[in-house]
């Protein structure tokens, strides 16, 4: 107990810690624990059955698969966008910078409808994709497009400060030592911004797993093919199957938590030696 009683010169630990615990309980912990209570009604076997029915398994696969792919795409292209915004000056830069935030601000249903309009077989882009035999809307590809759209700002906004911190001199040092641009990118720039890139990836991934509004329009919601888990939860609720919805929610919670924990672990591992001083 004495360990916690270390007095700081400035007061405030007791108050802020108390507030933090209380706030987290009210906003996060208590609502989530009702999930557990609700699904407890099903019992272990019922829970297991609900969470592992073939239709649900297909939805898991789509949700997590599309989320990983979308976060990965955002990691790559978000890096390029952030790099361009940090490194170069060009007319309309402020406008482009503001545009990055649009997926944050737009109601997800609006973006869903817009994306569907553009990517459906007779939409602006979907028409050309359709011509070469790619079905964008109402397919797993459409789900990935929607998840990529909503995840972009997370990667760009977490990378920007990290890239701004990157010293030009470090790159100059690398090239004076004989490194070409690709070697400099691989060995100097990427390792330096990797923690921020991982954070951005994690945030985009986490957001994508929970995304509902923009996906339901573009996916077409075909059972076993383009259903995502949040959609299944909503449809269970609509059928007044609260326990079943809670069971799915609980399983999502578990899987997401394990994945986020793992990514944080990787991050901690990659940052471990630079903490030094």
């Amino acid at each position: 107990m004495a360990r916690f009683k270390r007095h700081h010169a400035l007061p405030g630990f007791g108050l802020t810690m108390g507030f933090t615990l209380c706030y987290l309980s009210l906003i996060v912990l208590i609502p989530l624990s009702t999930l557990l209570l609700r699904s407890a009604g099903l019992g272990w076997s019922g829970l297991w059955q609900t969470a592992t029915s073939p239709r649900v398994l297909a939805a898991y696969k789509l949700t997590f698969g599309a989320s990983v792919i979308a976060a990965g795409i955002n990691g790559l292209f978000g890096f390029i966008v952030a790099w361009t915004l940090v490194r170069y000056r060009f007319p309309g830069k402020r406008f482009v910078d503001a545009m990055v935030d649009l997926p944050f601000a737009l109601p997800t249903a609006v973006s869903g409808i817009a994306l569907t309009a553009v990517y459906s077989a007779n939409g602006w882009i979907g028409r050309h994709l359709d011509a070469i035999g790619i079905k964008a809307a109402f397919s797993p590809l459409g789900v990935t497009i929607a998840l990529t759209f909503i995840g972009l700002p997370f990667v760009v906004r977490t990378l920007q400060p990290a890239l701004e911190d990157l010293d030009m001199e470090v790159e100059e040092a690398a090239s004076s030592l004989g490194a070409n641009r690709i070697q400099t990118l691989q060995r100097v720039i990427l390792p330096s911004v990797m923690p921020a890139l991982l954070t951005g990836f994690t945030l985009a991934f986490a957001r994508a797993i929970g995304e509902y509004g923009s996906v339901v329009f573009i996916s077409g919601n075909m059972p076993m093919k383009t259903e995502i888990v949040p959609l299944l939860i909503v449809s269970k609720l609509e059928q007044y199957d609260y326990a079943g919805a809670a069971a799915l929610g609980l399983s999502m919670l578990m899987i997401s938590f394990v994945i986020l924990l793992a990514i944080n672990g990787i991050q901690w591992w990659s940052q471990r030696h630079r903490a030094g001083a």
């Binding site: 470090v170 100059e172 690398a174 030592l177 004989g178 490194a179 060995r187 330096s192």
Partner: peptide, 26 residues
């Protein structure tokens, strides 16, 4: 050319040995 910067410009994610070996490795 060997260039030494005022603010060192060392590679922060590499230790002393790796910094020294950078030029040889690339």
């Amino acid at each position: 050319v060997g260039f030494v910067f005022q603010h060192y410009a060392l590679f922060r994610h590499m230790n002393v040995f790796e910094n020294g070996a950078f030029g040889l490795r690339v």
